[in-house]
Nucleic acid binder design. Structure first.
Lengths: 91, 91
DNA sequence: TAGATGATTAGATTAGTATCTAAATATACG
DNA sequence: CGTATATTTAGATACTAATCTAATCATCTA
């Protein structure tokens, strides 16, 4: 569970994708154009991000729109805090 | 820089080591006993954690004492926030 | 329905990481 | 100094992850 999240964040390209999505949703193609890797490679990264719950995807005709799932940030913050401040009960 | 940090957190064993160190410093041997892996393997993990600035080490005679470097938590929190909230200036 | 476009999946290759055992280094102490 | 104990480093292996090209799937439109 948290494993998928940390693993997803471990790759710099995926972190860049997240930062790009801060500026708003984008299609797979638009995202792929902003990175040097092949489309297929980016598609793989999208899958990882999705599995970690960091992004959502929605098909719009031929396009697939990816957007940031900000609600995971809460979980992430909790996990981070948990790594350093155990005394805090997980309410 | 941040890459080393995220990579260090990507491994579940290393996250467990961090959680163990929340309860206070421990020697390499003490830590190694709490994990199924070989001592050498744990030593490798310590190096990764150290390189990421997550732990400190100090030699005490024959022993090497590892402790959590809580000051990195600030950086970590900032990086996390940065991934999701770009509008915040990095003051 | 056929062709074009957008996206994902399959299969293979390469690079990186976790792990082990064995050897090396560091320190203490008799 | 020589041995015991604690830890790290070297070298090898297995596993995982990133990447590519080619093929497949999905949708639109003429």
């Amino acid at each position: 569970m948290s494993d998928a999240l940390f693993k997803a964040l471990a790759d710099p390209t995926r972190r860049e994708v997240l930062k790009r999505l801060q500026r708003g949703p984008a299609t797979a193609g638009e995202l792929a154009e902003e990175f040097p890797q092949a489309k297929a490679t980016l598609s793989h990264h999208f899958n990882v991000l999705k599995a970690a719950g960091l992004v959502r995807s929605e098909r719009r005709g031929q396009h697939v729109v990816y957007s940031l799932n900000t609600s995971v940030f809460e979980d992430l913050a909790r996990m981070m805090a948990d790594l350093f401040k155990p005394e805090r009960k997980n309410k």
